[in-house]
Design a protein around this nucleic acid. Structure first.
Lengths: 112, 112
DNA sequence: CAGCATCCATTGGGATACTG
DNA sequence: CAGTATCCCAATGGATGCTG
């Protein structure tokens, strides 16, 4: 026998779990900001580093690698000297932009 | 003289800043999950503790305090023994639920 | 330019025990 | 029940210097 509250409990756990997974992939201090700068298009390492306030090269490297591993951004290396690397959003990455837009709107409305 | 790229630069910084503020208030490991459980209505400390997988009382206390300080949740104490405390979303808190819904949908779509 | 390596301070956060 | 207090470890993340 399946009780009503059992179903609710399961469903809400499922939702919680999905939020948790999402947070793991695009949460944290730097990922949202990094992704949001990439909204404008392809950017080089140094450009992102300049646009995201306060981020260090070390943290940017780590952030970009994790996003790349989760197929949220794409890394294109141009084999030349000096090196040129361009980062851009994948389709999966594009799909988080609306969420960040909402977050941005919320921040402007409630955090000032 | 104001160049076009100066304007763009300023605007994107403003957006970045709003996202940053939002992340500070509702980001991190536990805040989204805690808020999302409160979506269903008033909950007691022990109920949230049970519904958010893996959270310890210590972390829950810290999380709830911060959310309360930012007026995202409301804390109601019933002066009785044993103590009873109910947490609920404020209007500001309610307004983040749609964002968490999007995040949840995104997680279900892309993180499995 | 796009990073990696190293060192080090700060913080996050788990486990456990205790209290009004 | 709803926390607090303490201990302690692991992860975060800043600063600096170096490299292909």
């Amino acid at each position: 026998m399946v009780l009503c509250e059992d179903i609710d409990e399961e469903k809400s756990e499922e939702y919680i779990c999905a939020v948790e997974s999402a947070i793991n992939e695009i949460g944290g201090k730097w990922k949202p900001l990094t992704l949001y700068t990439l909204k404008e298009g392809k950017l080089r390492f140094s450009e992102i580093n300049r646009k995201v306030p306060g981020i260090t090269p070390r943290m940017l490297t780590k952030t970009l690698r994790e996003l790349e591993n989760d197929s949220i951004i794409h890394r294109k290396v141009f084999p030349q000297v000096p090196p040129r690397v361009e980062y851009s959003l994948t389709p999966k990455g594009e799909s988080v932009i609306p969420i960040l837009d909402s977050l941005c709107e919320w921040g402007k409305e409630y955090c000032e």
